[in-house]
Design a protein around this nucleic acid. Structure first.
Lengths: 309, 309
DNA sequence: CTGAAAGCGCTTACAG
DNA sequence: CTGAAAGCGCTTACAG
């Protein structure tokens, strides 16, 4: 009835009809107990308040559901300890697969995944280890590309404003730093860090602080679009012309970034494609097959808009 | 070991120690099979692109996880047919409880829930039927309150701009209509409807269309904050003064609404409290108890900001 | 208050 | 290619 066994076709058809008639539906619990694996996939993301992950999740579900898997979403709040706890809880339920964000996890998380032998694909980043399954983009390179673009428009004093300070933000910081150093424009005082979660309100606050402290900046590169959107609003309140007085750029091309005034220069990240490809790779792994590649780099796109010269 | 049975305490302690030593962890699949119920709760929300539901979900998970339940999130995309399909899939897994958004569901959805005998709590709205478990607010009344406030500031020609046209949006439309009719200011031409999902970009587009068609409006009441935020940006591009030329109001008090220029007048909805209270009510029901009340009205708050006079 | 048996509804070897 | 038995790891009555 599951199409697993070589059965005479008429017999299978008869069984199917009988099943229909009786309204039979298989019990996932019994199946899970007998087969020692469930149809659940645990997905661990840092936060849904970052619209980025909403899009990733949407793409994951769209791919996993037709393949017969249920998605269990865990929100780690960017906290490795919470991630570890969530993972333990999910592992108890013997998921068929795991999708985790990024590559930086606690040792306990890493070993728990490895020991469980549950297939696992990493989202958003690319690992130097070719054995690790991951789908993402070169965060560092994307930041280099954006910084180089800002430099090419004549900006020299380009600040980097980081919030949350999660691994991907720090990779972008490294990319900015690399590009700035390459042109001899790097200064430690151009780095702004705030561990608070990114939001429009935080972006506004950071912009006010940065402008108050360093009034002669050419540009500010925010690690996420919501911060940059907030900065644009703060600039409007302070009557600071963007990009004439200071250029502003973001990262991710979130919703609204094409609407703000001026429209935001940013890096578009292929989050739907990442979610879909990662889910697809996991489906392959869960069915016992080997994916064509262990790593998929989906790239990024520099979006030039009016918030930079 | 589960603390269900009356057991001599020393014996229980001994068992506990042995369990620790052996690294015992119960198998949820076996438990589900034997007890005919799982520890899963299915949560059906329309979309995660509306930040409102991200907050509701966060509160639900925060309440359900410590109680030992796993959350299975289903996204219906505001489509009753998709909701029905999702619910069927979830019901197959015999969830311990269900949380659904709103009260308008397909007949098949309603009967499937009823037949399953799985406890179910409805989110966001309040039912006229006292038997139905629900936690939410009076959407209609909230819209009346906001409209009356706009009227009290001297606005007469107040348009209502609706997107998505889901049940809650239509309730708000009804509230606006009621308040406008009460003052004799209602005109059918003041109603603007767009079935597309609400977003900042759609709000900008709607604002441009409305202004082009009806240049002499006093105010526009958008059914959701993201639309209103987009409208504010469009007004800025068109150099239309808010609220001097036209006042703008939204609904939900989403993130950023306090930051936009001018800050947005809106209705703050208690979404975290709704998620928490609904999850709590469901936990009570799942443990076989009767909740204190079947319906919880968590109210709303009128937030007066600079986008209205 | 405690132990041991039966059974939940499947899947997986194992015979035929 | 097909049928029937054993067993997955729990919970739930049922004896003692």
């Amino acid at each position: 009835l599951r199409g697993q066994r070589a059965v005479a076709p008429e017999l299978a058809a008869k069984a199917k009809i009988a099943a229909e008639k009786l309204g039979y539906s298989p019990d996932p619990a019994a199946r899970a107990l007998a087969s020692r694996t469930s149809s659940h996939v645990a997905v661990l993301v840092p936060a849904l308040s970052n619209a980025l992950f909403v899009d990733v999740l949407e793409a994951i579900q769209k791919t996993l559901r037709p393949a017969g898997y249920q998605t269990l979403i865990g929100i780690t709040h960017y906290d490795p300890a919470e991630e570890e706890l969530l993972l333990r809880e999910h592992l108890m339920h013997r998921p068929a697969g795991i999708l985790v964000t990024g590559l930086d996890h606690s040792i306990a998380t890493e070993t728990a995944i490895a020991r469980s032998a549950v297939p696992c694909v990493h989202l958003m980043e690319l690992s130097p280890d070719p054995e690790v399954y991951c789908v993402g983009l070169q965060q560092t390179e994307a930041a280099v590309a954006l910084t180089n673009y800002l430099l090419s428009t004549g900006c020299k004093r380009i600040a980097f404003a980081a919030s949350q300070l999660d691994p991907r933000t720090l990779q972008r910081l490294a990319g900015w730093r690399y590009a700035m150093q390459a042109q001899g424009h790097y200064l430690p005082t151009l780095e702004w860090k705030d561990p608070a979660p990114s939001s429009i309100a935080l972006g506004a606050k950071m912009f006010e602080q940065i402008i108050a402290t360093r009034p002669k900046l050419d540009a500010i590169f925010f690690c996420n679009d919501d911060l940059a959107q907030g900065a644009l609003l703060a600039a409007q309140r302070l009557q600071i012309q963007v990009p004439q007085q200071v250029a502003i750029a973001g990262f991710n091309d979130l919703t609204g970034s094409d609407q703000v005034v001026p429209a935001l220069t940013t890096i578009r990240t292929p989050r739907w494609a990442i979610g879909e490809a990662a889910a697809q790779m996991l489906v392959t792994l869960m069915s016992g097959k080997t994916p064509a590649k262990n790593q998929i780099d989906l790239g990024f796109e520099l979006i030039k808009r009016a918030s930079t010269a």
